[in-house]
Design a protein around this nucleic acid. Structure first.
Lengths: 126, 126
DNA sequence: CACAATACTTACCAAAAGGTAGGTACTAAC
DNA sequence: GTTAGTACCTACCTTTTGGTAAGTATTGTG
């Protein structure tokens, strides 16, 4: 029984005790999209090493624009993969770090990235 | 020394003995994009179980259109992650399977997906 | 020969992602 | 007060992604 005014998110959460990425309406779908987004992967893997400031990420990730980086970070923070901390004293300094869940995801993404970097040559020359 | 007519792909391959996804021109970048594409992930994880036919993939992956599925498969075949085999006898039957490299990638993606399906509830309710 | 099934492809359109350039807000240093 | 640095945001535009619907090619069945 679902009352019309009730929170849809809550219903989905109840409906999928364990996620199923093959179900189009499962909340894990957007999460997977964010984790595997073009810039999201690269950000998360960098944060696995240590927390980074915005400008550090921007210069380490070749080809990313300010706009995309800030958008990507906002999404990851919103999902709960990353924390955003603003330095109180001095000029503007924002540091991004992994949450506990973010750490779990980032480890698996780093595994994929490292595998790809090692095995790239088995793919490209073909 | 690079002659104008020479194969750019070859140069890039020489240049990056080991891939570096943080370098914008590294060939690993597009490969990572294909591996982590919306439908690519789901296809590869399914193929980890066993080879599948086009129609099977279409019905197992909720929400994918024929067009996107065939485009995704074409890309994965082109990269060398997946093989495409057409049955010689009888009506049209096409079977997709992982290559050896595809297997390596798919295992890592499956790891990520399974982690996400288990940890989804630590993220969504927040 | 008509019809169904499978695996596509094509044309058309809408939405999302992404780039560039410029602007903003805050602070510190000169 | 002016300038520089950091971390953004906004408007504008192009490219890519993705959906729908229709059509194609091949083969087997009746």
């Amino acid at each position: 029984m679902v009352k019309p005014g009730e929170d849809l998110r809550r219903n989905l959460h109840d409906q999928f005790e364990r996620g199923d990425v093959y179900a189009p309406e499962c909340p894990s779908r957007p999460l997977l999209d964010h984790l595997t987004s073009r810039w999201g992967v690269l950000v998360l893997v960098l944060l696995l090493d240590r927390p980074h400031r915005f400008g550090e990420l921007a210069s380490l990730i070749g080809g990313v624009s300010d706009k995309m980086l800030s958008q990507t970070l906002k999404t990851l923070v919103g999902d709960g993969f990353v924390t955003r901390e603003v330095g109180t004293d001095g000029p503007v300094r924002v540091t991004y770090a992994l949450t506990d869940v973010g750490q779990g995801a980032a480890e698996r993404l780093a595994d994929l990235v490292e595998w790809l970097e090692s095995n790239m040559n088995a793919l490209v020359p073909a």
